[in-house]
Design a protein around this nucleic acid. Sequence first.
DNA 1: CAGAGTCCTGAATGAGCGTTCAGGATGGCC
DNA 2: GGCCATCCTGAACGCTCATTCAGGACTCTG
Lengths: 204, 204
Amino acid sequence: MGLSKSSLSAKAPEERRDLILRATVTVVRDRGFAGTRVSDIAEAAGTSPGLVLYHFGSLNGALDAALTLLEDEFHDDLARDLQEQVGPVERLRHMGDLGAGLGPAVGDWRLWLELWVRALHDPGARETRESLDRRWRAALRGVIEEGIACGDFSPADADAAATRLASLMDGLAIQLALDDPDMSPERLIALWWEAAVLELRMNP
Amino acid sequence: MGLSKSSLSAKAPEERRDLILRATVTVVRDRGFAGTRVSDIAEAAGTSPGLVLYHFGSLNGALDAALTLLEDEFHDDLARDLQEQVGPVERLRHMGDLGAGLGPAVGDWRLWLELWVRALHDPGARETRESLDRRWRAALRGVIEEGIACGDFSPADADAAATRLASLMDGLAIQLALDDPDMSPERLIALWWEAAVLELRMNP
DNA sequence: CAGAGTCCTGAATGAGCGTTCAGGATGGCC
DNA sequence: GGCCATCCTGAACGCTCATTCAGGACTCTG
């Protein structure tokens, strides 16, 4: 029995660390930052509270590390996802799908809400939030410019249109995250797409 | 000295209760729901922790009561504010100002963020959130219909336009609440108004 | 195979905080 | 004036955690 126990311990510390990180994201997702305890993370990761602190120094350290993991994955997923699409119209449409939670890139909007509130009080979270937002908006802006270049889009003001479409997505997604009965992924996509058509004066 | 102390106590309990409620809102505004302690509220209200519990039963009771106070005031302020404006265009413009934080009705968007996150985990907050949202959207919807009736607005889809304009306001306001360097009250107003012009096909 | 370093555990510690409570003051009522 | 209900205080209680720590096990190195 000593063996069976030890087969789990001291084995592949990097894997363990990563496991804990993902467990942290999971716990934050349904408990929120404020409700996440060290023991919750440990339990979700199938390990002991001590190990969480061993790897990350403190609860806050684990939360911060989870945040940066999230940021990196978001970046990679988004870049990969968009590359798979051909042409600005398809890419734009795909960003709508991502916003509706259909892809891995945006993930769960509840996490975004949590991040926003944490950003109100924690400088690290504030930076992560800004960085994530910047990347998302830059991607949107890139798609729009691509569309302008090839004649698919002709917005009156590309900058304003990009900001509005990004903000609209946030606002719609809030309702989705909060399970508002008036919102659904399909409706979000439809509403957002119509706004995009309007803003970008798309050529049919 | 016994007198000077007693002059503050046991005097106007309703006032005291209200004072505590307002103190609660203040504390939540800059500490957040998760960071608000009973002693913070007591200190901000210039009273003792015991009294907070005496009036509201528990910390959560105080937070909930503060939330309903907020909801009522929001409702009253919004109705009054809008009545002071003449015509749908003026009213719509005023709603933009309110969203930018210029009026008392919307108050502080940081509180809205906090409310959203609390709504993720607390049923009471969820209801308050939905109610506030409904009222705000109903007001917007009312203004839009008024504008349609008198020919100022002619949106392709009034429902969709209302939802989008409300959501856009939320999304823009998040950046304002988070002190995003790319956002300011003036920019929010301008961006939102342009969207309204576009969505509602306003007659100039 | 001995020793050292790394990884891991879970019980102990101690701080922070919600809540309780015993008691004091006030104001109204008879 | 005496009495009672209400209002109010702040010290004390007890619980919930984050964090510490002493020790055990594994892996690698020589």
